[in-house]
Design a binder for these strands. Structure first.
Lengths: 318, 318
DNA sequence: ATGAAAGCGCTAACAG
DNA sequence: CTGTTAGCGCTTTCAT
């Protein structure tokens, strides 16, 4: 009845009755039931956001971009976490889709067949984020990690480094880290250079792991002149160790990470890195959803952002 | 009809029809509509989790505890973020309650009157977390930040430090930081000591801020012999600066933070700190919700966990 | 073991 | 401007 209209500021309601209803609602402590509302109106102003982890520092920033873009909107983000597991992704997705959200923002381009099917069948805008190396189901916004790896490789060669070591997460399910690695080795190969040593880790405090792995690697392969880390956290740990040991960085030895996490500002030396455009990815993804929902003819397909190399203090300039 | 029974493994259904339904569902890519289900059954297996921030490192860990406890359950956490604003908290809460969750886990004990009213009226279990200095609406799990501050103050005095500086976030809306500060000054007062210098910051990279503030403070008050930081991140930044400048830590100058964030493991020196029991808080909170929902006579009221001081390398032992 | 019917609390469309 | 009437897609209860 009229009550519904008042609470949603819809249609014409006389200020008098409006007042009355509002007051009654307040004194009764009335909270509308969105479940019933959603069922009746067949629309749920929620955007499902599916990411691998909240601990990773990268994703909270993407989330920030999304929230900000959705702030002045009816839409609200709801996040689900997959822990980098395709199985869990499938479950989370199923769970979220069963609430009939207005759109989905999901990290990565690789999903199980079932997940892809659900997304395709959902009949709502789907934006895959972070990565553009592959074919999106609907829309995608991100960076090309393969290209990012390649460019870092190129920059390193141009700076004159030749004996290169790599450290990173186990490359199994982190597709983006894998693609960076592939692009990196590819660029090196083009310059006739091969990675001389490499090491992978799976869990633990990234800073400490970076430190340990770096120590192990420098003992094993003392003549390395560059260390490429798959993320800034292990890179920072490594750099701390190198600094303590008195390595001449970046001349005797250079190093670089990936992500440009601002968390690390304040460390003694600034690690060379590459911005992964996290905020903007979030914002753009949200905007695409909004556009689609407004019926704008937002172009489907990929939006590829371009990360820049930030040489910091640890990459000799060529 | 029968379909409903199959999908929920309820009631007696012949294996034959069961098979048929399941297959049909799969080929049709059928995803049940939880909205309708929730409306009909009057129950939503969601737990609203309301926290100030996801960027803070503290809350993701609490979330981890909650998720793990809820893993084998029907319940699913859904998080809302308040950005430390009571207004936003109210909005988020209203929004979430309108989805009729089965329970609420919310950070802190201070809420607007409206928020308290909503929580009290919701008729669902409510667990306030992180803090026990105050009166909970329903149940609470956390630590006494006042006591944490007091204990750190006591430990510092016992170790013989006397000229103490404090650095922290602006104490406006972060009630827990404020309570720690109050407890801290109280303990010092009991020992006849007063804080000699203090500085507050609002935003920016915590590590960098800690560094800057420490530098400023040590220039302004060079005879300080202890620095108490309201969190580990600024503490770590400060410690890095002190180490670079060659301060004799912890003898000439001690320092300590709060939270015991594992993120920082791997820094050259380990900051003295206090564990804030984040994981366990999350787990216990979830368990209380579960208990209440199962009708167990879980005792209402506060659960106060006891944080321990971890002296690291920066607190002289007494 | 299965079908039929009622209704969850709202919104949408239409009357008044 | 305001009231009335149908559902939304399920679950629940009751009959078969």
């Amino acid at each position: 009845m009229t009550v519904s209209r008042v609470l949603r500021n819809r249609g014409d309601v006389s200020p008098a009755t409006r007042e009355k209803v509002l007051e009654a609602a307040k004194t009764l402590g009335y909270v509308p039931n969105k479940i019933a509302g959603a069922l009746a109106s067949q629309q749920v102003n929620l955007v499902a956001v599916i990411i691998p982890s909240v601990a990773n520092m990268v994703f909270p920033e993407v989330l920030g971009g999304i929230s900000r873009a959705l702030e002045e909107t009816e839409l609200q983000p709801v996040v689900g976490v997959t822990d980098y597991s395709p199985d869990k992704e499938e479950k989370v997705l199923y769970e979220m889709l069963s609430w009939r959200p207005s759109g989905v923002i999901i990290a990565g381009l690789e999903h199980s067949d079932a997940s892809r099917a659900m997304l395709a069948a959902a009949g709502i805008p789907v934006v895959e984020i972070m990565d553009t190396d592959g074919a999106p189901i609907d829309a995608a916004v991100g960076i090309s990690h393969r290209r990012a790896g390649r460019e870092m490789g190129k920059a390193i060669l141009e700076a004159g480094y030749r004996k290169i070591g790599f450290m990173g997460t186990k490359l199994g399910l982190d597709h983006r880290a894998r693609k960076r690695f592939e692009g990196f080795t590819e660029a090196l190969a083009k310059g006739g250079v091969e990675i001389q040593d490499q090491e992978f880790y799976s869990d633990g405090s990234a800073l400490a792991k970076g430190r340990e792995m770096t120590e192990a690697m420098m003992i094993r392969s003392p003549d390395l002149d560059f260390l490429y880390y798959s993320n800034d956290m292990i890179g920072a740990g490594g750099l701390l160790w190198l600094t303590e040991k008195g390595y001449d960085v970046p001349d005797r030895l250079g190093c670089a990470g990936f992500n440009d996490v601002q968390l690390l500002q304040g460390l003694p030396r600034k690690l060379a890195t590459m911005d992964s455009c996290r905020q903007e990815i979030g914002r753009r993804a949200a905007e695409i959803i909004l556009g689609r929902l407004n019926g704008d003819d937002t172009p489907t397909g990929k939006v590829e952002l371009t990360p820049r190399i930030n040489p910091g203090d640890t990459l000799r300039l060529s």
